[in-house]
Write a protein that binds this DNA or RNA. Structure first.
Lengths: 262, 262
DNA sequence: GGACTTGAGTGGTTTAGACCATTGCGATTA
DNA sequence: TAATCGCAATGGTCTAAACCACTCAAGTCC
């Protein structure tokens, strides 16, 4: 079995028995969980603690990991329930709306925030403007089938899109850019990393603070290669995964990726 | 300010002051952390607890989050230290080795495991073979500058690559596939999601069990569209992030060439 | 009937304390 | 000198207990 690999570090039968209780408990709870259909409920923390003969603290540590993995959902005054699966989001230039619909989900998006501020030097460089120029900052809450999924913060260079703030609503940003400014997206550079939910994000997402998140940053350019927007989005890690299709670079060995990156 | 959005849920001045101590503590520790250069050490848990007037449990909760975010590194009998930054890995068909080198890192890769087993129906479908056919399973530990970064588990259809198990070592798998079987990769489908490190993975990565991980699954095909391998890799979420370049779907293939010049 | 109150049960936070496992260094020893 | 031992400090695990915040349904009141 796979665990044998760990055994290598152990000299002949001396100090192997150091398996924390919450690991074992987590395994047993995961097993118990398999018998529960999505949305079904589990016993309370205190009941589990006495049933397995451990403290409530230990139970909570095991439950916390299962929750972080998306296998459990916990509701404060209510109980602990089996988790739902993960949705997938394709990494592509198409809009969130299009992509969700293609997965048979009903996407909605609400504007939380729209404000204008001055660009700091770093942001100015990203957006191709001068430091101190006006930047439009939009915050959106993305939902799928009514469930909050992600918080998206876009920043756009106002000098390039004068009056953009007046066109923006709950509708498609890319549609506005095309209709009013003739801008089409050409390519984008995305980075994906892990993060933990801040209290504010958790409150908006119906999540818990400290929950696992996928942090996606997108730097978009138009078909002429000029910067269009810079976006940071946090997605619920327990409900989301990303999909990308990669194509062979060999067709022209001097392909895209390696050289674009300075 | 942005946080005002949260205030909507609070009725007139009644129950706003519900900020857990470990949130506030985390902020203060993060601030304290800014004054420490990467690798520098922080006070011990007990010292922090008494200094901030909270219990050690609360300190540990705050430290745990900072650790999960990669801002701290903790070493058991030794101490707590400021974290290093994150490396980036490009999502592309090129090999791990190439990619790391292009970032100025010294990549190494060791074979942990090579075994042959029978494919279950699901795996058989992924690899384009019949259920029960032989599958070669390879487990590799990837390092950058000697530091363990990821565990990669590849599965390849032996009926398509007879004798492959004899060619495999610490070298390039894709090189072997090309030289002995004339196979070149055409495209791949990748998914990225969050996960937590299992005890076994943590032991190999020098990590802690329960640490944040990026789980990357890759389904690779050759230039003829036939399945070549199915890979699951876990990357340290505190040390890694992924980068992808997206191209516009509407302006077909030649858009790539256009973009390269940019 | 409808609105309100109440209380039991749930998960969330925090404490104080005990003990374990690992590390690293100083003192001791061969 | 070089190896070993011991010990103190560190982070890791676990407990028992208290209290808070939220939910929901049963009961109450109008």
């Amino acid at each position: 079995m796979g665990e044998n690999l760990l055994g290598d570090a152990v000299e002949n039968g001396k100090k192997s028995p150091r398996t924390p209780k919450h690991w074992e408990l987590k395994e047993r709870l995961a097993e118990l969980l398999r018998a529960v259909s999505p949305g079904g409920s589990l016993p309370g923390e205190r009941a589990l603690a006495s049933e397995f003969g451990v403290s409530r603290t230990t139970v909570r540590k095991a439950l916390a990991e299962l929750t972080a993995e998306g296998r459990l959902t916990r509701v404060h005054g209510s109980g602990t329930f089996a988790g739902e699966g993960k949705l997938t989001q394709r990494l592509q230039l198409s809009s969130y709306t299009e992509d969700m619909r293609s997965h048979g989900r009903r996407p909605t998006s609400s504007l939380l925030d729209a404000r204008i501020g001055a660009a700091d030097p770093e942001l100015a460089a990203l957006l191709g403007i001068r430091s101190g120029d006006d930047v439009l900052r939009l915050r959106r809450l993305r939902r799928a089938d009514g469930e909050p999924m992600a918080i998206e913060t876009s920043r756009l260079p106002l000098p390039r899109f004068p009056g953009l703030d007046r066109y923006v609503g709950d509708g498609s940003l890319y549609g506005v850019l095309y209709q009013h400014y003739g801008v089409e997206l050409g390519h984008a550079e995305e980075t994906i990393e892990t993060a933990l939910a801040t209290p504010a994000e958790a409150a908006l997402l119906g999540n818990e603070a400290g929950a696992l998140m996928l942090l996606l940053s997108r730097h978009s350019f138009d078909t002429d290669g000029r910067p269009v927007e810079w976006v940071r989005s946090v997605y619920r890690g327990d409900r989301y995964k990303f999909v990308a299709t990669l194509v062979s670079p060999q067709s022209s060995d001097d392909s895209i990726a390696a050289r674009v990156e300075r």
